[in-house]
Amino acid sequence: MAAGGDHGSPDSYRSPLASRYASPEMCFVFSDRYKFRTWRQLWLWLAEAEQTLGLPITDEQIQEMKSNLENIDFKMAAEEEKRLRHDVMAHVHTFGHCCPKAAGIIHLGATSCYVGDNTDLIILRNALDLLLPKLARVISRLADFAKERASLPTLGFTHFQPAQLTTVGKRCCLWIQDLCMDLQNLKRVRDDLRFRGVKGTTGTQASFLQLFEGDDHKVEQLDKMVTEKAGFKRAFIITGQTYTRKVDIEVLSVLASLGASVHKICTDIRLLANLKEMEEPFEKQQIGSSAMPYKRNPMRSERCCSLARHLMTLVMDPLQTASVQWFERTLDDSANRRICLAEAFLTADTILNTLQNISEGLVVYPKVIERRIRQELPFMATENIIMAMVKAGGSRQDCHEKIRVLSQQAASVVKQEGGDNDLIERIQVDAYFSPIHSQLDHLLDPSSFTGRASQQVQRFLEEEVYPLLKPYESVMKVKAELCL
């Protein structure tokens, strides 16, 4: 049975990233139509530049190519590739079939990587351009969430054990800070992308030097003109047959890092959902379990974690691919890159769409948070109580021993009897502590235990987050809708 299948058929496997999760716009960027249309555009740009620099290419040939950029006979191309065992030459023939007058000058002087690699770089750039505003929107939604809850005390956790208090907004800023680093890295790697350009079979530009009869300047002009037509500021000066596969490492490393950030955020949300302090959106008709109707599973956060793990592992592909590119190139890269580049971007696209949807509907339960604080705060307040007693004339050592005994009794009630923490009640009825009984409410005010959390939130948002989001103001209103 021949390899390949009808990918629109229910009898043929289709990647869930495309069929179930990723956005239509990201799927289109990695589609065959987008790819092969870009090949034709690159052939047109090459012909236009070659004509401008004096090669015998007519206006009629150029116009014929322009008129057929979208006229792609995919069936013919597939048949040609089956016959020739070469995808680029299959599309040269297919393009030439609908451009008979231009057929002889299509791909003039070029090698397969002229269309293959340059198209990949265009796709990487455009895919990054799709991700950047999506990530900015996630940051914006979380920034709104953090600002609104900047002063809401909550129990902090280290080692997932109760620690000092923080605020809900401050905790959210930990998430935002990681995503801001990801946004900066995505922008950097996007701006650092260079075009492969017009380089020939081993990167020496020998074929173009021959076409222009040894004119170095025209060869350099050709490279520059096509690079500018493709919208790049610069091209690699040095290439082998391909652009260095280190570029793929750079791009997928940034995406993998984004995956790590999203995994951490969504894990926190899942843990908070278990504590009943916070939940992701839950639709009115949504079913959490087929057997347990009360369940409210954090399905979206779980999906993000599941896909983020996949995204983090994909960076190993370009690392290994770059390491086995012998001399000017081997074909070890080809099949692998067809999979890992598309999957990385479709996965990143999915987790950003999902995280935006989550961040637009996060639900906080202040009463649950308050109750958990009441359970733990008495123990945390013991040092403040000791200091207040010393100020009232008591002995630190005597007070410490009193607190120690009462704390152990209260802990026994919590752990052995399943009761509430009654340390404060014990202190309130103990005559030894009568000098500070009137101060206990103040000493137990949760806001006095959150330090500068709310001020940190305000400063972080104003100095770091809002300036970073400013270039994306025009796209901030787009909502994230999930079908599944």
Rank of each mutant, 00 (worst) to 15 (best):
F449Y: 13
E80L: 02
P100D: 06
R171S: 04
Q375A: 14
G169V: 02
V465A: 11
S323C: 15
N185C: 10
R270G: 02
E64Y: 12
F145T: 15
G394A: 06
A273P: 04
L152N: 07
R426Y: 14
I424H: 14
R404N: 11
E425D: 14
D192C: 00
M389R: 05
P366C: 04
S454Y: 08
A47M: 10
T330F: 08
I123D: 03
A322C: 06
Y114V: 04
T313M: 10
F95I: 01
K479G: 15
G203Y: 00
I358L: 12
N118A: 04
T242Q: 12
E79H: 11
L17S: 11
S323I: 02
R337C: 09
V478F: 11
E401M: 06
V168L: 05
V189W: 11
D349I: 06
V368L: 03
P56F: 08
L130R: 12
V251R: 08
G240H: 06
W43K: 04
G361E: 11
A273I: 11
S323A: 09
I358D: 15
R396K: 13
C98T: 03
G259N: 04
E473D: 14
N68G: 06
V168N: 03
P10N: 12
W175E: 10
E370S: 15
C305K: 00
D268I: 00
M65W: 02
Q455W: 06
K246H: 04
T204W: 01
R196V: 12
D192A: 12
T321I: 12
C266D: 00
V429Y: 00
A381Y: 13
N353I: 11
S334K: 03
D144M: 09
W45L: 05
R245M: 01
I57G: 02
K134C: 07
V168P: 12
A22D: 10
Q177T: 14
F236W: 13
N185I: 09
R296L: 14
F232Y: 10
L271Q: 05
F145K: 03
V324T: 08
E228M: 13
L131I: 12
L53E: 04
L179R: 03
A273V: 09
L469W: 03
E417R: 08
D73R: 06
I369D: 04
V189M: 12
A136F: 15
E283H: 10
D178M: 00
Q439W: 07
T38G: 00
C113F: 02
W326E: 02
H217A: 10
I385S: 08
L352V: 09
Q320L: 09
V29L: 06
M389I: 06
Q325G: 13
G5D: 07
D441L: 09
T242G: 07
K470R: 13
W43G: 01
N71F: 05
R141T: 13
L193P: 03
I249S: 03
L355G: 00
P133L: 10
L17Q: 10
R190C: 11
F379A: 02
D430T: 15
L193S: 11
Q41L: 06
H97S: 04
I385A: 00
M26E: 05
I265M: 12
P378V: 11
L135I: 13
V247F: 09
I72A: 07
Q63D: 00
E328D: 10
L362E: 03
L319P: 00
P298M: 05
T350F: 08
Q397G: 10
T158Y: 00
L135E: 12
V414L: 13
D11H: 15
E48P: 00
S253P: 01
T313K: 03
